[in-house]
Computed example of a mutant assay.
Amino acid sequence: MPHQLLARIAALLLALVPALILATPASAYWEYGHQTVAKIAYAEVRATTRAKLNALLRHGALLGTPECPVSDMASASTWADCIKPLKDAAGKARFGYAYNWHFQNVDICKPFDLKTPCADGNCVSAQIIRQQARLADRSLPLADRIQALAFLTHFVGDLSQPLHAGDRHDLGGNKVTASYGVIAGRANLHMIWDGYLAERSISTPPGGVMGLIRSTPRSERRALVAGEVTDWSRDSWRVSHDSAYGAMFADPCVETKGPRPVMDEAMVQRLIPVARRQVVAGGLRLAKLLDAALR
């Protein structure tokens, strides 16, 4: 084969790499993202906290959800999503009461306000506080504390996903049709941040739990865990405005009609550090809450 033809083929393949990477199927955030947040927390908690976590997780079967087993922090992190379709003897959603606990619809185009969306306690930040208190309460049955651990682990991950923390009255971006590279179809903004962008960001070198932690300067790690749940809610809400919506629209608060927005490779590269930060923040904040609950 002539050298010139080989060179042309190589150049074509190199040009296709970004599009092929963008088109790679991604695990949903509830799986890859949540598990990574949980693993970071497990690596960062005190040794005494880790021992207490292990003691609790050995009794995961007490949850009574064999369809959704819990045996370690990774499986605990996805339990709250796994149980959603489970039914009771009457055919009703067994955990339907927890549906609204995964998010909070805080308007990104108005001053930050948790009082209205969390008035009844049925929002993610309120449940983080509640589940941490239940985990810390040694008077509760062991099964209740294990459930609290699973809920807490999952909800801190949810709060770290910016579209669970702030939106434009569009179900956290689920109503915002968008394309991820060549992937269009039924893709939407929430799906992109839950899956495609999450997987790309977490797996970008230096990947893995220690890669994510060590690539975050200590000063930034200290800043990420400063404050409390309300501060972390405001932080994710701001990321939702500035990056989740801000990257796709010239003005995040002005709905525009026209071609569906596309998250291309250049935009992905700009957002990878943002998405990685959110995962690290979730893990470090969860570690702080676990250390406080199990001290």
Rank of each mutant, 00 (worst) to 15 (best):
D137Q: 10
L13F: 09
D107E: 10
L56M: 06
L57I: 14
S236I: 08
G33T: 06
G246I: 08
A80K: 10
G172Y: 01
D235I: 15
L152F: 02
Q131P: 00
I129K: 12
L140T: 08
P259E: 06
R94L: 14
V124H: 08
S219F: 13
G181L: 06
D144W: 04
R260Q: 13
I40Q: 03
H164R: 15
L284W: 09
A126H: 05
K84E: 11
V70A: 00
I108L: 07
T65K: 01
P206W: 10
V176T: 13
A119D: 00
Y42E: 14
G166T: 09
I129T: 15
L57T: 08
V262T: 09
H102M: 13
D231R: 13
R276C: 07
H154N: 13
K257C: 06
V37I: 15
A293W: 03
D291L: 13
H59I: 11
N188T: 04
R130P: 03
L62M: 07
L149P: 00
P206H: 04
I272V: 15
S233K: 04
A143W: 05
R238I: 15
R218I: 11
K288Q: 13
T153Y: 01
P25N: 04
D120Y: 01
Q127V: 07
K87W: 05
P205A: 13
D120R: 09
S201G: 00
L13R: 13
L13G: 02
C82V: 07
A7D: 08
M1S: 14
D144P: 07
S201Y: 00
A11H: 11
Y245S: 01
D137H: 04
L284C: 02
G227K: 08
L114V: 12
C68W: 03
L63P: 00
S139H: 14
W30D: 10
G283H: 06
L290S: 03
L135N: 01
G33H: 03
L63M: 02
S215H: 04
G121I: 04
L271A: 08
A80S: 12
G121M: 02
S233T: 05
I9A: 03
I272F: 07
A43Y: 05
G282W: 07
G33R: 01
L212F: 06
L140V: 12
P66V: 11
G246D: 01
V280M: 06
A7T: 14
Q161S: 07
S201M: 02
P162Q: 03
A223Y: 03
F95L: 04
V182A: 14
R295G: 11
E31W: 15
A126T: 11
P259D: 01
A148G: 00
C118N: 04
R270K: 15
R46C: 11
L5V: 12
A90D: 09
